[in-house]
């Protein structure tokens, strides 16, 4: 049997070379091996794996075993790395993967949409008839502010203000949607709470402003971006419900496995919702408050709603079997 020292002496050249190769690509997904280096790397990788087994089975001490363990770990990390992400992958995601994933999990979206839109509509209807009830849901100061905002026939002019609002809408709305998604891991309870809460608050504000007689201003304002925004919140909620359901109904898997398996689809849906909300924020900032007659806004809003529905139901359909 070969001695430990002999073994070290014979193998250390390879270990050093392997370390060199690792160092070459470590910490950056941009640096790559040449063709020869690739095959050299995979040959050395298998040899180092083998060395580690030998050292362990012969009980040649933790120092050497630890060293080889770490070499193999680094090699493993490089050997099995996924290809780096590129822009066209993002476009493919938005163009087809996200709507497909959305459709595969359509039922979750339906439940989330129900939890969001039904309380919204009920609150809206009730508050529109009796605006004084809104004060039970929201502080009076906030209602006054909302009314003040829509009282003016003309919105503040284009320019400075709008760009700021664009940034604000992104941060605020995407934040709400992602929080709504994330809290789904608390067995879905967080998602349900956020959906109900936002549904009721939005319903109350709209109902109140409409009830006070500013219906044209507020409806023409929200119709356009509402298409992307409200839908996206329900979409993100659907993602959160997938997480919750994965834990509650794991099926044949363990709960953790189930969560892990379905987590990928859930986060893809949440990510798609975030993209939709960024689109919504741009519409809300630059189009919705435009000083043009309401008819144009209703027309554009209608088209946007159709666009959203078509996008979610049809995008990426052709390639689905391919």
């Amino acid at each position: 049997m070969i001695s430990k020292r002999e073994f070290r002496r014979q193998r250390r050249e390879d270990w050093a070379r392997f370390t060199e190769l690792i160092r070459k690509v470590d910490n950056s997904s941009r640096r790559k091996f040449t063709a020869e280096e690739s095959s050299e790397f995979s040959r050395l990788f298998r040899m180092v794996c083998n060395d580690l087994s030998i050292v362990r089975s012969r009980d040649w001490g933790t120092g050497l075993a630890l060293y080889l363990n770490d070499l193999v770990t680094k090699g493993h990390n490089i050997f099995y790395k996924s290809p780096p992400s590129r822009l066209h992958q993002f476009l493919r995601f938005v163009g087809s993967e996200f709507p497909r994933t959305f459709r595969r999990n359509f039922l979750y979206f339906c439940v989330a949409a129900a939890l969001f839109f039904v309380p919204m509509m009920i609150t809206w209807g009730v508050v529109q008839r009796r605006p004084e009830l809104a004060a039970r849901i929201l502080p009076a100061a906030m209602l006054d502010q909302a009314e003040e905002q829509y009282k003016q026939a003309e919105f503040k002019k284009f320019g400075a203000e709008r760009a700021v609002m664009g940034g604000f809408y992104v941060r605020n709305n995407v934040g709400i949607a992602l929080r709504c998604f994330a809290m789904g891991i608390l067995l879905g309870t967080g998602t349900v709470y956020v959906l109900l809460m936002n549904g009721i608050v939005i319903g109350a504000v709209v109902g109140y402003v409409v009830g006070m007689g500013h219906d044209e201003q507020i409806l023409s304002f929200i119709v356009s971006h509402g298409s992307f925004e409200l839908t996206a919140i329900a979409v993100a909620g659907g993602g959160g419900l997938i997480l919750g359901d994965a834990i509650v109904h794991p099926g044949a898997r363990s709960r953790i496995d189930s969560l892990r398996t379905r987590g990928v689809e859930a986060v893809q849906i949440a990510c798609g919702a975030a993209v939709m909300l960024m689109v919504a924020a741009m519409i809300e900032a630059f189009w919705s408050p435009a000083p043009i007659p309401s008819e144009y806004k209703y027309a554009a809003g209608g088209l946007l709603w159709i666009l959203v529905i078509l996008y979610l139901s049809l995008a990426g359909r052709g390639g689905e079997t391919a």
């Binding site: 320019g159 400075a160 203000e161 709008r162 760009a163 700021v164 609002m165 664009g166 940034g167 604000f168 992104v170 941060r171 995407v174 934040g175 992602l178 975030a274 900032a285």
Partner: peptide, 18 residues
């Protein structure tokens, strides 16, 4: 240049957060 830098800043903030 009022407005746009502020909007960009909110986007940076959003990115740092999420």
């Amino acid at each position: 240049l009022p407005g746009i830098p502020m909007g960009m800043w909110l986007l940076i903030w959003f990115f740092m957060e999420w």
